[in-house]
Simulated assay, not measured.
Amino acid sequence: MERMLTKKATAAGYTMEVTVMKIGEDFQICLAGGEKPHIGCVVQAVPRESLTGDGSWSATSSVWNRTGHKDEVLCRMLAEKICCACRTVTVCTGGVHIDRITGEQIREIVDAVEKMGEEIAQDLR
Rank of each mutant, 00 (worst) to 15 (best):
I82W: 00
P47T: 14
A9F: 02
V43R: 00
M1I: 12
S50A: 14
S62I: 02
A9K: 10
R3E: 06
K81F: 02
A9H: 02
C92W: 02
V42S: 01
R66H: 01
W57R: 09
Q44K: 04
C75K: 00
I98R: 12
V91D: 01
R76V: 05
C83Q: 09
V73C: 03
S58K: 09
G103I: 11
P47W: 12
L51Y: 10
W57E: 04
E49Y: 13
T10A: 10
G103H: 10
V42K: 01
G94H: 10
R87Q: 15
C92V: 06
F27D: 02
L51G: 12
M16C: 13
C30W: 07
R3A: 07
H69F: 05
I23F: 04
D71N: 08
C92L: 07
N65L: 15
E80S: 12
S62H: 07
P47E: 13
V20P: 00
E80L: 04
E72M: 05
W64Q: 06
T6N: 03
T102S: 15
E17H: 07
Y14L: 07
A85T: 03
I29E: 02
T93V: 13
G40T: 06
I98T: 07
M77C: 06
V89K: 13
T93M: 03
W64N: 01
E17D: 04
I29R: 00
V63K: 05
L31Q: 08
C86R: 11
K22P: 00
I82S: 00
C83H: 09
C41K: 00
G24A: 13
H69T: 04
W64G: 00
V18D: 01
M4W: 08
S56W: 04
K70F: 05
E35C: 06
L31M: 07
G13T: 03
V96F: 15
S50V: 05
E25C: 08
L78E: 08
Q44M: 13
D71K: 05
T10R: 13
K70I: 06
T90L: 07
T19Q: 11
L74G: 10
K36Y: 06
M4D: 06
K7D: 09
R66I: 14
K7M: 13
T52I: 09
K70V: 07
K70A: 08
D99W: 05
A45P: 09
C86M: 12
C75T: 09
A12E: 06
A32Q: 13
A85W: 03
E49K: 14
C30D: 11
L5D: 02
E35M: 03
V18T: 09
H97G: 06
K8I: 09
V18K: 02
S50D: 15
C86A: 08
G53I: 03
K70P: 04
L51E: 08
F27W: 10
L5V: 08
